[in-house]
Design a protein around this nucleic acid. Structure first.
Length: 471
RNA sequence: GCCGGCGUAGCUCAGUUGGUUAGAGCGCUUGAUUGUGGAUCAAGAGGUCCGGGGUUCGAAUCCCUGCGCCGGUACCA
């Protein structure tokens, strides 16, 4: 019986044209993280189900992939890297040198409905400082976010930050019970997506959307909704200006001054380090859906591709390890959505997607010269040039050149009996012909022109290629 | 999860009120050109018409059902 070759929904294979820019991207991110002294950690893809779900409860488990082992224990695939980190910190507490500053790049799984740019397996690249109560740790995370986005050359971007503490002040200000906070924050988090009018309706009476689906409201009063609207309306050209308006609004709220002073400190440090309000904004409408955040929260968007949403986000979570029964350990960090960011950069045409890593193709035209072709290829490899030699069935030169063209291999080495006798090879730069083909009409002319070709003494081939490739 | 739309060649799609042997463009392979990519021309390969069941003399076409994809919405620890 024939089995159909196929993948379960939401999963995908990554071909070379996706993997090559992706690996470059991971290298760049790793470089920035290591420049801050973060160190690598790896944990298994599979964890005990109760470790993963913890206090999150049943609803957390519906989008989790479940797994069983031969002992029939209840296991699941991790859905983020923060929960495994908190497990590690709890499990090895005594042996870890705090602050534990680690990075981790790994796939995670969520059994959500797939959507454009959204898959059931995707890769996160996280940094976190665990055991770091100081707001300096938060400053570093935000600075690292900026440095990473700069290094990736993503174009214009904006990091926005706020704090759960500011949102808690909002609850006091509007007279909303603390236990309703997470629900209110969840609605506020949708502001970018659904807009203010719908947010207000969802906070109060609820509504029926365009498709006829009923959206239940939280039952806040009109007055409370109006207070929240005033709060959400706070903007400023600079962080200082926005912060001033928050101070003004919350002047009568108990404890507001101390909480807001912390934001001030973060902002001052960022300013001193050159992370100005053009890149890092204070935006009090940033809520982040996750319930576990306790302090500053951050979110980065690409200004040229806003439809991709936040590509890099995080915050402070001081209580996460308490679910394992330990003492609270202050922690802060951020996570980059590798797949989403790459999709955005592809969309913006900011990454090239070659189908091969090869820089040179050594063609095999004359079977009697095969050992010479091999010698050339290995000579180039030993000189640090990524080289492919024709290993397919014997083919005409035209077919071999066609492969170089399709795979976007920039250079081709051609050597027939003629060149061999004279101790030279023909080095062809493929891009020249690609440009000239626009104007060439007849095939005879095309062949005769031999675009981008030069003869190079065999002994100088490696040095010439190294120079052309900028080594 | 819920609402709506759509499943025909590798891709994008056409296919008459249900009627012979299911088509087009692009792509692919081969050749024209046995040492030159693009263009052009010629020839060729490629299909369980998403699966299953039903109606009918006859189903890609109509009905039921399962699956998948797309859009919206909910959820997102």
């Amino acid at each position: 019986m024939k089995i159909e070759a196929r993948l379960s929904r939401g999963l995908r294979d990554l071909f070379p044209e996706e993997m090559i820019p992706r690996q470059r991207m991971l290298d760049v991110i790793r470089g920035v993280y290591e420049s801050y002294g973060f160190s690598p950690l790896e944990t298994p893809a599979v964890e005990y189900l109760d470790v993963l779900s913890g206090s999150a409860g049943e609803e957390a488990q519906q989008s989790m992939f479940r797994v069983t082992n031969p002992e029939e224990e209840a296991l699941g695939l991790r859905f983020d890297l923060t929960v495994p980190l908190s497990r590690v910190v709890s499990q090895y507490g005594q042996q870890i040198d705090f602050p534990f500053r680690r990075y981790q790049v790994s796939p995670v799984w969520r059994a959500d409905k797939p959507a454009p740019g959204r898959f059931r397996q995707f890769t996160q690249f996280d940094i976190d400082s665990v055991g770091a109560p100081s707001e300096i740790a938060d400053v570093e995370i935000m600075a690292a976010m900026c440095d990473t986005l700069d290094a990736l050359q993503v174009g214009r971007y904006r990091v926005r930050f706020s704090s759960r503490k500011i949102l808690n002040l909002l609850l006091s200000y509007a007279g909303i019970p603390e236990d309703q906070g997470v629900h209110v924050f969840r609605v506020l988090d949708k502001l970018d997506k659904i807009g203010l009018p719908k947010v207000k309706l969802e906070l109060t009476t609820g509504y029926t959307d365009e498709s006829g689906a009923p959206i239940s409201g939280l039952g806040l009063s009109d007055r409370q909704a109006a207070q929240i609207e005033t709060f959400l309306g706070i903007t400023g050209e600079t962080r200082a200006e926005a912060l001033g308006k928050v101070r003004e609004l919350f002047a009568s709220v108990e404890g507001a001054t101390a909480e807001l002073d912390e934001i001030q400190t973060i902002s001052d440090h960022l300013e001193a380090l050159g992370y100005g309000s053009d890149r890092v904004m204070l935006d009090v409408s940033i809520a982040r859906g996750l319930a576990y955040y306790t302090g500053p929260v951050f979110e980065a968007n690409l200004l040229d591709a806003p439809e991709f949403g936040s590509v890099f986000a995080g915050g402070r979570y001081d209580n996460l390890v308490t679910r394992f029964g330990g003492q609270p350990i202050p922690a802060t960090g951020a996570s980059i959505g590798v797949d989403r960011l790459l999709a955005a950069l592809v969309h913006l045409k900011r990454v090239s997607q070659p189908k091969t890593t090869a820089q040179v193709l050594v063609t095999a035209m004359d079977g009697s010269l095969m050992s010479e072709y091999l010698a050339i290829a290995f000579e180039l490899r030993r000189a640090g040039v990524r080289t492919e030699i024709h290993v397919g069935r014997p083919k005409k030169l035209g077919k071999q050149l066609q492969r170089a063209d399709r795979l976007q291999i920039p250079y081709v080495v051609i050597m027939g009996g003629d060149e061999a006798a004279r101790g030279v090879v023909t080095l062809k730069q493929m891009e020249v012909g690609r440009e000239e083909s626009e104007t060439v009409q007849s095939h005879e002319e095309w062949k005769a022109a031999r675009f981008g070709q030069q003869e190079v003494p065999r002994t100088e081939l490696a040095a010439t290629l190294r120079r052309l490739l900028g080594h």
